[in-house]
Design a protein around this nucleic acid. Structure first.
Lengths: 189, 189
DNA sequence: GTCTATAGGAGGATAGAC
DNA sequence: GTCTATCCTCCTATAGAC
């Protein structure tokens, strides 16, 4: 049996990611994590806010490893980015459009309502952008352009998730992937 | 004095857009709209859900006119799209990063929790994509490519909003705008 | 149409037994 | 560490006077 704290954190990451901060209740979390309400406050004395912040940062690390793994496994960066968009679309379909970006919903929701959580989401996005930028630089793209392309690529992916989840179709992800890859290819030539 | 129903709808559009569906309370709406709680249920007997759906569709129409106006005012589509990104960034700064896309927060939040509202957000996104696609076609881009580019452009803008609101910086919007414009220019040549 | 009061339930959080 | 009972607040929604 997995440790209680890990079960709570795992369930929180999933629920906050899908339903947002306000839309997820502590009772729902303990019910799905099969834990007692008291256990949440034992492990996360800061309550809902602390739990959500740890969920955000946990998602950040998991996805950082995913970004690195997918890009570093591919024959080159261009293929890696293409694989990432393709994989994101496949995962969206596999989860019936439930799991896209684990922090985007929270990010938009807390942007103007909770500065501490807002900062946590900003830190995570920065982590992802920096990882992508590193790889584009390694491929020979100058630092400034690499950062611009990384921000753009992440933005296109995040926005494609919004459109895809709303329409329950991966058309937007495919459109975004195609054009992002074209921009990276252009910067490499 | 503006009609009560309009005041409620206007305030709802603003609050749901910023805080999402679950994060916005009926009491907060009537307080800011300076109306009575009973008035909400008089004009919107379907309650919170009906109010949010009307807010989504209202935002859809307003932004549709904005998209059309900005693009049709510019000397050509490319300039129009560039102006749209520039204007979006300026508006974000002007509102201290509070107002970006009026339905994105709701869209992500309800994507896996409320099918009726999810459909409303999908309808609105489709409306915007169709308007952009029309203009790209008029500029000489074939239908299939025009739709793909429109989906991609909207995705890049939506995702740039997410990153910009989280980081409180318009760096992502500028990066997205530059690359989207480049893709459209490439399709036109 | 507008207002206030309130029902009825769900929210986050705490206390204290075990 | 875990569990249950419970506090108190806030939520959506309704009722009914005006």
């Amino acid at each position: 049996m997995v440790a209680t704290k890990e079960r709570i954190l795992h369930t929180s990451t999933e629920l906050f990611g899908r339903q947002g901060f306000a839309g997820t209740g502590m009772n729902q979390i303990v019910a799905e994590a099969q834990a007692a309400l008291g256990s949440i406050y034992h492990f996360f004395p800061g309550g809902k806010e602390q739990l959500c912040e740890e969920a955000i940062r946990t998602s950040g690390q998991i996805y950082l490893h995913l970004i690195e793994a997918v890009i570093d496994t591919a024959p080159d960066v261009t293929e890696g980015v293409r694989d990432f968009f393709t994989g994101a679309g496949a995962h969206l379909v596999a989860t019936d459009y439930a799991d896209a970006c684990p922090i985007a919903t929270i990010a938009l929701e807390v942007a103007s309502t909770n500065d501490e959580l807002r900062r946590a989401t900003a830190d995570v996005f920065e982590l992802w952008v920096a990882a992508a930028s590193d790889r584009l630089e390694t491929a020979g793209i100058p630092p400034h352009t690499a950062r611009e392309l990384s921000l753009f690529a992440l933005a296109a992916l995040e926005g494609a998730f919004v459109l895809s989840q709303a329409s329950r179709s991966i058309e937007a992800i495919e459109a975004a992937g195609t054009n992002v890859v074209a921009c990276i290819r252009a910067a490499l030539s």
